[in-house]
Simulated assay, not measured.
Amino acid sequence: MIRVASRPAPWKRGPVLAALALLLGLFMQLHAWIPNRIGNLGSLAETVLPWFGLFIPVLLAGALWRRSPSAVAALLLPAVVWLNLFGPLLSDKSHAGGDLTVVSHNVGADNPDPAGTARDLSASGADLLALVEITPQAKPVYEKALAKTYPYHSVRGTVGLWSRLPLSDTEPVDTAMDYGPLAATKPDAVKAAYTRALRATVATHRGPLAVYVAHLGSVRVNPRAGFWTDSRDRGARALGQAVAAEQNERVVLLGDLNGATDDRAFAALTSQLRSTQDAAGSGFGFTWPATFPVVRIDQIMVRGVTPESSWSLPATASDHLPVAAEISW
């Protein structure tokens, strides 16, 4: 007697797909529980967390192919979690108007056309323009090209701030190492060699505004060290200390932080400042790499002022996209 194998009942089809869907949802919901002790896996996951949503349509296609109601039902979990985490970013939260337009751009140390980049940025209409990764060779090019539009500027190390409004109290901010009380004992020459952040006061018609420009340390991904972020994380803590000590209630932070604000490493900053993209942008605003942006590592963050709109500017000759925001009192 020959027996014909029967197909499993519909709700018993695709158990692997259903399990994967549930795991995906739990992974996104519990990302804060992923430990950083091994290769900074938690920070790495949080940096690319929005992209895990791409697994949802992939699993859905598999569930439909297998005709598995259980897998389709299980996919509700990751779909709801993803929308809860990132759905608000998809709506346009911008408003018309603003007292100041601010722009931040990592101009790139290997930028083949700094003069063209400066022209593009001048045409943006920014009142404040923050540049990072300025090389000694490119510095005079930017200074000359931006002088007519921005009569006030200050460059410290590899970061600079150009302004239509008067600047004062400009000073470097030590983000090279989280020295704590030992910072005062460091030689000035050592501090200058590692200057990747500055602080200035901008005289606006609504009162003084404290502006920080920063370029935090690079990150690396390799099999041996995992997601290496030590230099960046020290800089984020030091920058957080500087913002915490800031006396001015109105603060703007501009720069390349080499990380997404969802990354727990930026808790010292995100606990005090809010991202203009999250508050007044439309979409994720990814900025790097410029040819196909997959992460937003260039940030504009504020305290004491209101973000009205936030957006990315067209590509320049840099490998980063410029970011802009309108802020008001």
Rank of each mutant, 00 (worst) to 15 (best):
V102M: 10
T117F: 01
N106S: 13
V103D: 08
G97F: 03
L76C: 15
G98E: 15
G97H: 05
S122L: 11
L85V: 02
A71S: 13
S124F: 04
D99Q: 13
S70P: 01
T117N: 02
D92E: 03
V72N: 04
N111S: 13
D113C: 06
D120C: 08
L89A: 14
N106C: 12
A109L: 13
G125W: 09
A96E: 15
R119S: 12
H95Y: 03
S124N: 05
G97A: 07
W82T: 01
A115R: 12
P88W: 09
N106K: 03
G116A: 04
L77Q: 03
G116P: 08
H95S: 15
L89R: 14
D120E: 15
A79Y: 00
A96N: 11
D110Y: 10
H105N: 14
V72I: 15
T117S: 14
N84I: 02
P78M: 07
H95F: 04
W82Q: 07
V81A: 06
N106I: 02
D110G: 15
L90F: 11
L121H: 04
P112K: 00
V107R: 00
H95I: 00
D92P: 08
A79H: 01
G98D: 15
A118C: 09
S124G: 08
N106Y: 10
T101A: 06
V72L: 15
A96F: 04
P88I: 09
A73C: 14
R119W: 01
T117G: 01
L100R: 00
T101L: 12
L85Y: 01
V81H: 03
K93E: 10
D110I: 09
V80P: 01
L77D: 07
S124P: 06
T101F: 01
N84Q: 14
K93I: 02
S70Y: 01
G125K: 06
A74D: 09
D110H: 13
L100D: 13
H105Q: 15
W82G: 10
A123D: 15
F86Q: 10
D113E: 10
W82V: 04
F86L: 11
D99R: 12
N84P: 00
S91N: 07
L77M: 08
D113L: 06
P78G: 06
H95M: 13
A109Y: 11
L90M: 15
P112M: 00
G98V: 04
W82L: 10
L121R: 04
A115I: 02
L76E: 07
D92S: 02
P88C: 14
S91Q: 12
A115Y: 01
G125Q: 11
S91R: 11
A79E: 02
L76Q: 05
A74E: 08
L100V: 05
G108C: 07
A115P: 02
P69F: 08
V103Q: 05
G125E: 13
G97K: 03
D99P: 05
G98R: 09
